[in-house]
Design a protein around this nucleic acid. Structure first.
Lengths: 213, 213
DNA sequence: ACCTGAACACCGTTCAAGT
DNA sequence: ACCTGAACACCGTTCAAGT
C-alpha cells in the first residue's frame, strides 16, 4: 500500500489536490474554503481554485453559476460549522446560549478573512438567520412578546455581526503587544470584550422588558 | 456672459463635468463620492471616475496612490459630514449624543452602498474613531473608570457599525411592503429599531456599572 | 508638476466545442 | 453530463513620455 501511495504521489506531484473520481460540488466548496482560510476572500480567484482542483477555470461553473454563489456556499458551511460547534449549549438558558454563540461565531468567521464582510453585503440566508444562537420563537418561549422577541433577536444579530466584521481591528488585542494606532484601544482580550458586550446586551434587554416605554 | 456660457456648454456637451482650471484632490474625492452614491462602491472604477472628470484614467494617480486610498478619503468625508450634522447634539448628555449619532451615522453611510463594508475592512482612521459620537475621554468625564470607558466606547462603536453594515437587510423595513424572505423580520421601522438597540445598550451599560462583576 | 498613451498582468465570465 | 480551450470585456496599475 505504501509503494502504491508513493507511485500515485509521484505521478501527480505537480497537481496539488487530485480527487479520485469526478469533481463534486463539495470538492469545490472545500477547496474554496481552504483558499479563503489561507489568503482571504480577496485571494480567491476562479483560476487559483481551478489550479488547486487540477481542472480548468471553467469547470466550477458547471456547479455554481457565479463566484458569488460559491462564496455563499462557503459562508453557509462556515456558519453551519459554528452552529454545530455550539450544540453543547443547546440546553442552557437563552442568555448563556447567546454568549456561547457570540464566541463561536466570532472565532469561526475570523478564521476566514473577508468572509464576514462579504456575507454582510449579501441577502441573508437561513443559515445566517441562525447566527445569534437563538431564534425569534425561542425568545417568545422565554417570555418575550412577539415584537420584543423580534427586536431582541435582530439586536443580537446586529451586534454579533458588528463584532465579527471588525475582526481586523481587534487583532492587536490578541497578542500582548502594544496597540497599533489603527486598533481599537482596549486593555482586555477579545474574549473579555465579547463577554462585556454580551453582558451589556443581556442586561439591557432585561431592563427594556421590565421597564416598557 | 450668457452667450459665452452657452458657447462653452455647446463645446463640451459630451464631457459631463468640466472643471474650470486644473484638477484638484477635492475634485476627485467629490466625483468619487457622487459615483458611489449613484452606483455604489462596486460601481466606482478609475475609468468611470476619469470620464466624469473629463481626464484620463491615470490622472487621479497623481493625487492618490491607489483606489483604496481614494475610497478612504471618500469614507472620511462622509463620516465627517455625519459628525458635523450631529453638532446640535454636542451639549446633550452622553446617552442622547450616542442615540443621535447612531441615527445620523446610519443614514449618512447607507446613502453610499458598500462604503460601510469597505471601511470595515480597512485600518481605522481618526475620523472613524469619532463614530460613536462620544470619545473615551468623555465617558470618563461622565463618571466611568478608564477600563469601563474603553469598553463602553468600543461596544457602541461595534454596534453602530454592525447596524450600518447590515443596511441592505433593513431596506424592506423602510417601505410598508411585506418583508422579503431575505430581510430581517421586524414589524417596526429602521429608526424605531435603532432606538430600541440604543436603549438596550444604554440600559445595559448603566447596569454593568452599578453591578460590577 | 501635471497629465497622457500605451501597455501589462490580471480578473470573472460567455460561448462553442469536445468527450 | 461534465469539462476544455479560446476568447471577450473588463479591471487596477506600471512605465515612459509629453507639456
Amino acid at each position: 500500500v505504501a509503494s502504491e501511495r508513493a507511485e500515485i504521489e509521484a505521478e501527480i506531484d505537480e497537481s496539488p489536490r487530485r480527487r479520485s473520481t469526478t469533481l463534486t460540488r463539495d470538492d469545490i466548496i472545500e477547496a474554496a474554503r481552504r483558499i479563503v482560510a489561507l489568503v482571504g476572500v480577496d485571494g480567491l480567484t476562479m483560476r487559483r481554485l481551478a489550479d488547486d482542483l487540477g481542472v480548468t477555470p471553467m469547470a466550477a461553473y458547471h456547479y455554481f453559476t457565479s463566484k458569488e454563489q460559491l462564496l455563499d456556499a462557503v459562508g453557509a458551511l462556515v456558519v453551519r460549522e459554528a452552529r454545530d460547534a455550539d450544540r453543547g449549549a443547546a440546553l442552557l438558558s437563552w442568555d448563556e446560549r447567546i454568549r456561547s454563540n457570540a464566541h463561536t461565531t466570532f472565532h469561526a468567521l475570523t478564521a476566514y478573512p473577508g468572509l464576514a464582510t462579504f456575507l454582510l453585503d449579501r441577502p441573508i440566508s437561513r443559515d445566517l438567520r441562525a447566527t445569534p444562537g437563538i431564534s425569534v420563537e425561542e425568545f417568545e418561549q422565554a417570555g418575550f412578546s412577539r415584537d420584543e422577541a423580534q427586536l431582541a433577536h435582530a439586536t443580537f444579530h446586529t451586534y454579533v455581526f458588528g463584532l465579527v466584521s471588525m475582526e481586523t481591528r481587534f487583532r492587536p488585542l490578541k497578542r500582548g503587544r502594544k496597540p497599533d494606532s489603527d486598533a481599537i484601544l482596549i486593555n482586555v482580550g477579545v474574549d473579555e470584550f465579547i463577554d462585556y458586550g454580551i453582558d451589556v446586551l443581556i442586561a439591557g434587554i432585561r431592563a427594556q422588558r421590565s421597564h416598557p416605554s
